[in-house]
């Protein structure tokens, strides 16, 4: 049972990681003068969009999302609406945090918000997909020993890695190397993406390695 779950998760992660690579390569073919540094925002939106789509699709197909009690359309719609609101709130939250960290308030607000969108896609969207718009469940997952399935653990790891990646990505900005990737917010969004990819990679390995210690409470 363990192996099946881990294998499933690994393949899901592989698909998401592949989508990031595709989102980097495809515009290079389609869009003229595309480059990760030069047209950074295009790259950022393409990655965010593809990750969002793939995430939703994968988790829809796998049926990871918590079973809904009511199956009515109106309930589903309200859930969808709430999810959208949560996503937007999380974007605003990340935007605020990034501004508090010293991002310019007015100029390049679009860049800052794009970074917030990217961060939300990598963290909040996955939470929404796996846990649904259920704050109680989020708190449970993000408190220690709160994980109840491999998916919860993977969520913890990828979220942490993305945020830490963004955090570390800010370090090269003050260096006086005058490289194209030091322009705000390129290093941070690259850091986020690399952190997320690392999280995707390490989550199955980490769970496999620690499967003796991991004892999930049965649902």
């Amino acid at each position: 049972m363990w192996d099946v779950e881990i294998r499933g998760m690994a393949s899901a992660h592989a698909i998401i990681a592949a989508s990031i690579f595709m989102a980097t390569i495809m515009p290079a073919v389609l869009v003229e003068k595309f480059s990760v540094y030069g047209t950074h925002l295009v790259w950022l939106y393409s990655v965010a969009g593809s990750v969002a789509v793939v995430n939703i699709a994968v988790f829809w197909l796998l049926g990871i999302s918590p079973p809904t009690k009511k199956n009515t359309l109106s309930y589903k719609l309200s859930k969808l609406f709430r999810s959208c609101v949560y996503f937007l709130l999380s974007c605003l939250f990340f935007h605020t945090v990034v501004v508090l960290y010293g991002a310019p308030l007015l100029e390049s607000a679009l860049e800052t918000f794009s970074l917030a969108v990217l961060l939300s896609t990598f963290t909040t969207l996955r939470c929404l997909c796996i846990l649904g718009p259920n704050v109680q469940a989020w708190i449970r997952v993000f408190s220690r020993d709160g994980a109840m399935s491999v998916w919860d653990t993977s969520l913890q790891i990828t979220t942490g890695c993305s945020v830490v990646g963004a955090w570390l990505g800010a370090f090269p900005i003050p260096l006086d190397w005058d490289r194209p990737w030091q322009v705000w917010p390129i290093s941070c969004s690259l850091g986020t993406t690399i952190g997320f990819l690392t999280g995707l990679l390490t989550a199955p390995l980490w769970i496999r390695w620690h499967r003796k210690q991991l004892t999930y409470k049965l649902k």
Binding site: V135, I139, F142, S143, R144, T159, V163
Partner: peptide, 15 residues
């Protein structure tokens, strides 16, 4: 405790 989502920065909280 368990009633609110903790700050987003760290993913695992000690007891």
């Amino acid at each position: 405790r368990e009633r609110r989502r903790p700050g987003d920065d760290e993913e695992d909280d000690p007891l």
